[in-house]
Simulated assay, not measured.
Amino acid sequence: MYLTRFRVNTARPGARRLLSSPQSLHAAVMASFPALLPTSTNTGGPRVLWRLDHNAKAEVFLYIVSPGTPDLTHLVEQAGWPAAAASPDTPGWQSRPYAPFLDRLTTGGLWEFRLTANPVHHIRRKDGEPTKRTAHLTPVHQKGWLLDPVRQQRAGFRVVEKPQDKRLLPGGTTDKKYEHHGDRYELTVRDERALSFAKSREDRSPAHRVKVVTVTFDGRLEVTDADALRRTLAQGLGRAKAYGCGLMTLAPVPSPPKPEG
């Protein structure tokens, strides 16, 4: 497996078109793998995941996790810096083997993480009506989606709690009804985006539009099942993976500053 990073040149018209259309970006990502067809279905093994990180207006990164190495030449031409990528040593993106990192994961390890996801739940508006999948729209419920004990257990991690001296609220809570939210966990939710687009170019009727709400989680986790977490990092977490959701990345927890003197 490979982890790839590509910086998007947001000043280019091609980049703006891709950033405004999850379907177009998904197609561009899938076109990076000559052996894969865009219509390929996943059977539970490694799949292609991607995520956009909007760090600043002019600093947008595309991350890809894939079974093989991608060729992003077409993305460099549309949405990168072609002249700067003219040298074979600087193709315009960076790809590294992912397996050595995954093999380092051990139960009990602490990591910082980032995840863009599509937090949803199923509701029934009235008795006898079929349940309908609906997006969580408030930060407290979006956090609750990720903090769900069953979801975390299956994914192989748990979001760690803040030390008492770092909590801004007594006990880290805002309300007894939501005692697993509030200020208790090393978890923030940001960058909510409501996406709405046609399923196909041929069918643009409002009834057939795809609507997806995405949010980005930043936080700190403890590995509870290294094999399960490896599967999560390789296969994604949650729904809407074709639209840039599900890819979780990890980073080492910074070392605490050494005392002076």
Rank of each mutant, 00 (worst) to 15 (best):
P206G: 05
D165G: 03
G182D: 11
S255V: 13
T134P: 02
L75A: 10
H208R: 09
G219Y: 01
L102G: 07
Q164D: 14
E129S: 08
R51Q: 02
R124Y: 06
R158S: 12
P100S: 06
P254S: 04
T232S: 09
L247V: 03
Q142D: 01
Y243N: 03
T69C: 15
H122V: 11
P91V: 11
V150I: 08
P100L: 03
A251L: 04
T90A: 14
V150H: 07
A28S: 09
Q153R: 04
Q152T: 01
V189Q: 03
F157D: 02
R184A: 12
Y2H: 13
H180P: 01
R231A: 12
T39R: 03
R167G: 03
L19F: 06
T107N: 14
R190D: 12
F61C: 10
T107D: 15
V140D: 07
A35D: 07
K199W: 06
Y185F: 09
L110D: 07
G246K: 07
S66K: 05
V213W: 13
E192I: 08
L72M: 13
H121G: 10
F113T: 00
P88L: 08
A198S: 08
P22D: 08
A58H: 12
L195R: 08
A117H: 01
D225G: 02
G238K: 08
G80D: 12
R220F: 04
R204P: 05
K162C: 01
R154F: 13
S200R: 00
L237S: 05
W111D: 12
E129F: 08
T131F: 07
D203L: 13
D148E: 05
S196Y: 11
L75Y: 09
S24T: 14
E59C: 04
L169K: 06
V48C: 07
Q23A: 15
L195D: 14
D225N: 01
A86D: 04
L137P: 02
P119K: 08
P254W: 00
T224M: 00
L146T: 03
A83E: 13
P119V: 05
R96P: 11
A99M: 14
Q235N: 06
Q142Y: 01
G144E: 14
R230Y: 01
G109D: 09
G261F: 09
G45C: 09
A198K: 01
R125F: 10
A35S: 04
S87P: 00
L221M: 07
L237I: 10
L52T: 10
P256C: 11
H122K: 12
S20Q: 13
T214D: 05
W50N: 12
R220W: 02
E222F: 07
A84G: 08
C245H: 02
P130G: 07
G236M: 06
S205L: 12
Q23H: 15
P259W: 00
R104P: 08
A226I: 05
R220P: 03
Y178W: 13
L25A: 04
D53F: 00
K199Q: 10
T224Y: 02
H180N: 13
F197V: 06
G92N: 09
Y178N: 12
L62P: 01
S255P: 09
K258S: 14
W93L: 10
K177Y: 15
R204Q: 11
L18W: 02
T216E: 11
A11G: 13
P97V: 14
T4L: 02
H141R: 05
R133V: 14
A207L: 05
T43A: 12
V8P: 03
R204E: 10
E112D: 14
R220E: 07
